[in-house]
Amino acid sequence: MSIGHTLLGLLESGPRHGYDLKRAFDEKFGHDRPLHYGQVYSTMSRLLKHGLVEVDGIEAGGGPERKRYAITDAGITDVERWLVTPEKPEEYLQSTLYTKVVLALLTERDASDILDTQRSEHLRSMRILTDRKRKGDLADQLICDHALFHLEADLRWLELTAARLDKLREAVTR
């Protein structure tokens, strides 16, 4: 996730202090990992340097967190460009799991065992997410769903691989 673009977007509704920015970010997106102040500071200086934000005012007391930032026209353009640019779908072409399965086949270990264990682990995560989803609000649900769908995709791959283990064995041990 691009933190710079996210912070820029948060500034669009009006100028904010660095501290407010961190709070707003944590509240909306930072469920898993809250931002460090340092991260906010370094990001804002980078944005300043590129002319995407400007300092709107400094409160007494000094320090980077006391600065009030406002977005520039260039900044708005930048956010807009970011939003309309589709994310590149991630391709897990060389996943660890694949490596593990192939290795197991090559060393004549039980590959389906690896897959079953992995599925069990995935399901464990999914159960936790499902549970959180049931207890949480709409934001929680959407975020959990995102993760759940990714995990489900992995699981589908696991199923498919399990069904094709024999063919894979032939292919890699030839």
Binding site: D116, T117, S120, R127, T130, L148, F149, E152
Partner: peptide, 27 residues
């Protein structure tokens, strides 16, 4: 056969070729 439905369970049992595997007890 849907993982997202299975995620509502406490644990799962996998059946393959008529044989079952209890994942919790296996781990």
């Amino acid at each position: 056969h849907e993982a997202r439905v299975a995620a509502y369970s406490d644990r799962e049992i996998v059946v393959r070729d008529g044989k079952s595997r209890d994942m919790e007890r296996a781990v």
